[in-house]
Design a protein around this nucleic acid. Structure first.
Lengths: 357, 357
DNA sequence: TCCCTGCGGGAAAGGGCTTTCTCTGCGGTA
DNA sequence: TACCGCAGAGAAAGCCCTTTCCCGCAGGGA
C-alpha cells in the first residue's frame, strides 16, 4: 500500500504538506504544490490508512450499535432510524449482532470501546439477569467515565439516556381489543421470558384481561424464540393443550406470522375461528393474508431519537423518552365465534385494511 | 482511556511485557508478572486501542462487504452465509450498504481499503454502466495489487473470483412453468433495468417463452424498484395496460409480495384468475397467502462460497462458481383460467405447501 | 536601513501498540 | 574457574498519520 510519504516523495513535498492538501487543512498551500500532491495521489491510488488517521487525530467519530440481529425487521427498522441521523452528521456506524447472547453483547461493548467509538447504542431488549446486568453496567460505566456516550433502546436497568417503546401499554391495547371483541380464552405466544420486552408486554396484556374480569393463567402462555418458527411451534403447543382458544396474542409480528402458519396448517380460520394479534407492525404485517392486526411501535423514530440523544448535548440528568404504542386494526382479529361467545356480548367493529393501489 | 503504558506502570513492568501478557504472546513471562499485569488490566478496565493495534501489526484480518441493503431479506440471507464463515475464522466483518448507489459503492471500496481489510466482497448485482464498471475495476485492481483479495457475488464485469447465482436458468424455470400451465399473456414485474440481475433473469424468461412459441413484448414488462412497493406499483401499471394478463412473473420475492397486494386490492384471485411467480425464495415466501411459487436461489450458500473463496488459498486463475436455481412450487401459480385457455392445453399439476406443524 | 509581521513550508513530536533487538543473570559444561 | 547458552525482561524502533512548532523569506512601515 502506498503511504503518505510515498505521495510526498513523489510530489517532492513534505508529508506535512501532503497531509494538508489531502485533508483540506485550513493552512494554505500554493496551488502548484497542491496540484503536484493531487497528481501523486491519483497516480499511486493513494488511500489514507484509516487506522493511522484515527490514531493520529484523537477525534472519536464513529458510533457503535449493538442489536440482536439487523436482519430481523424489528431491528432493521430501528437501524434505519439510527442510520439516518448518523449519516446526516457524517458519522460511521459500526453495527454488531449479538444474536441475543449476553456474553457476545459484553464482548461487543469491549470491542466497540476498543474501536474508540464516540457513542454506544444498545438496541436490544434488556435481560432479566442480574449478573449480566451488573457486568454490563460496569463496562458501560467504564466507557462513560472516559467520555463515551451511551443510550439504550427499551431496557431498564441502566441509568442513562433511554428510548423506551411503551411495551406495557401496547400489551394492554392488544388485550383490551380482544376483550372488547368478547374473547376470554386467549393464548399468548411469547418470546423468551428472560427478555424484559416479553415480560413488559405480558404485564400490559395481563392488566387488560384483569380489567375485563379474566385472568391469564401460565398454562395459556408459551415461551419460544422471538421468531417465525418459535411462533409456529408455540402456537401448536398452545392449541394442543387448549383447543378451545379463540384468540392468540403473539408478542411480536414474526411470531404472529408463525402462528398464522400453524393455524392455516390446522385449517382454523382466522379470524372466524381464532383471532390473532401481533406486535411491532413490521412492514410485512400488512401483506400477509389476512392482514395482521397488530400493535404498532414507531421503530424508525425510536432509532432517530436514540441517535439524537447520543449525538446531542449531554444532559445533566438521564433522559428517558417513552414512545407510545398504537393498535392497528386489520383483519386477523374479529369477534369471538358465536358458539363460544359468552355473556359479554361484543359488537362487531369495523376493520380496515391499508393495501396499496 | 487507560493505555498500555498505564497498565505497565501500574503493574511495575515494561509495556513490552504487558503487551505480551495481554496478547498471549509465545514469549514466556513469569507467572508473577503475568498476574500483576492481569490485575492491572482488570483494575483499570483496560481495553486495547484497536486502531493502534491494527496499525502496529501489519496483520490484516477484517473483511469488507458491500451489499445493497442488509435489511433486504435477499442480502440478509447472503450475509448470514458470509458471517458464518467469517466467524468460524475469527474474522470481523465490515458491512456497508450501498443502497444501489454506484457512487456510494465506489466510496465504500475506498473506505474499506483505507480500513485495511484483508478482503472485499461485492454482494450486490452488477450494473450495466460502463463508466462505473471501469472505475470500479480500477479501484479493485489497485486494491488487489497490494495483496487484497476480491470476490463478487452476481455478475459484475470483474475478472476475478465470483459466485454466480444462475439467474438466467432461474428466469427460464419460471417462464417454462407458466408456459406449461398454459399461460400466454404473461406480464413481468422487473427490477431496475440497469442491474444485470434484472436483465439476466429476463433473458432466461424470454428464452423459455420463445421455446413455448410466445414472445415477450416490452409493453408487458414494467421496471420499478426491486422492493415491495415497486412490485405493487409495476403490477398496477401492467394490469392497467393489459387487463387480460393471466400470469405475472416478479423478478424478486419482494416485488411478488407487492404484486399480490395489488391483485388482492383489485380482487383478482390468485392463482384462479392470475398466477404469480416470484424469485429468490426469501423466508417470507412460504408465509404469504397463497404461499408463493418462486425460484429458489441458495442465498446462504452463496455467501458461504464467496467468503470461502476470499479467505482460502489464492488461485492462479479466477474461479467462477455458478449456483443453480430451482423452482419451488407452492400455491400462486396455477393453470390458465378456462375462459382464456388456448389450444396449448395444460394438465393441472400438483401443488405443494411446506408449512410448519 | 532595520524591524516586525505574516505566509508558506518543513521538521518533528506524538498517538498507542507490537516486535525485534539487546541486555542481564543464572545454570550447566569443560 | 572460565565460558557458553538461554530464559526472561526491557529498550527502542517502527506502523502511518496529524498537528504543533519553528524557520526562512518577502513585504511594509518607521
Amino acid at each position: 500500500m502506498a503511504t503518505l510519504s510515498d505521495v510526498a516523495r513523489r510530489a517532492g513535498v513534505s508529508p506535512a504538506t501532503a497531509s494538508r492538501v489531502i485533508n483540506g487543512s485550513s493552512k494554505p498551500v500554493t496551488d502548484e504544490l497542491r496540484e503536484r500532491v493531487l497528481a501523486a495521489v491519483a497516480e499511486l491510488q493513494y488511500v489514507p490508512n484509516a487506522h493511522a488517521q484515527l490514531l493520529a487525530r484523537s477525534h472519536r467519530s464513529a458510533v457503535g450499535v449493538i442489536v440482536h440481529d439487523v436482519s430481523d425487521p424489528y431491528f432493521a427498522e430501528i437501524t434505519r432510524g439510527l442510520q439516518r441521523v448518523a449519516t446526516d452528521q457524517g458519522r460511521l456506524l459500526m453495527i454488531c449482532n449479538s444474536y441475543r447472547d449476553p456474553d457476545r453483547e459484553l464482548e461487543y461493548v469491549e470491542l466497540l470501546r476498543g474501536h474508540q467509538v464516540a457513542a454506544l447504542i444498545l438496541a436490544g431488549s434488556g435481560y432479566h439477569d442480574d449478573a449480566f446486568t451488573r457486568q454490563l453496567n460496569e463496562k458501560l460505566a467504564a466507557y462513560e467515565a472516559t467520555g463515551g456516550r451511551v443510550a439504550v433502546i427499551g431496557r431498564h436497568e441502566h441509568s442513562g439516556d433511554a428510548v423506551m417503546p411503551d411495551n406495557r401499554a401496547g400489551g394492554y391495547l392488544a388485550g383490551r381489543e380482544l376483550c372488547d371483541l368478547g374473547h376470554r380464552a386467549i393464548g399468548v405466544v411469547a418470546g423468551p421470558r428472560i427478555l424484559t420486552t416479553t415480560t413488559d408486554r405480558l404485564a400490559g396484556l395481563r392488566q387488560a384481561l384483569a380489567e375485563g374480569g379474566h385472568d391469564l393463567p401460565e398454562r395459556r402462555i408459551r415461551y419460544a424464540e422471538f421468531d417465525r418458527d418459535g411462533g409456529a411451534e408455540a402456537t401448536a403447543r398452545l392449541l394442543d393443550a387448549d383447543p378451545e382458544l379463540t384468540a392468540i396474542v403473539a408478542l411480536n409480528d414474526s411470531m404472529a406470522i408463525g402462528a398464522l402458519a400453524t393455524l392455516r396448517a390446522r385449517s382454523l380460520a382466522v379470524p372466524q375461528r381464532v383471532s390473532v394479534v401481533g406486535f411491532d407492525d413490521m412492514p410485512i404485517a400488512r401483506d400477509v393474508t389476512p392482514a395482521l392486526t397488530t400493535v404498532r411501535l414507531p421503530l424508525v423514530d425510536m432509532g432517530v431519537r436514540a441517535m439524537s440523544l447520543v449525538l446531542g448535548a449531554e444532559a445533566p440528568a438521564p433522559r428517558v423518552e417513552v414512545l407510545p404504542a398504537e393498535l392497528v386494526r386489520r383483519d386477523t382479529a374479529g369477534p369471538v365465534p358465536r358458539s363460544t361467545r359468552d355473556t359479554a356480548g361484543a359488537a362487531p367493529r369495523p376493520r380496515r385494511g391499508d393495501d396499496a393501489s
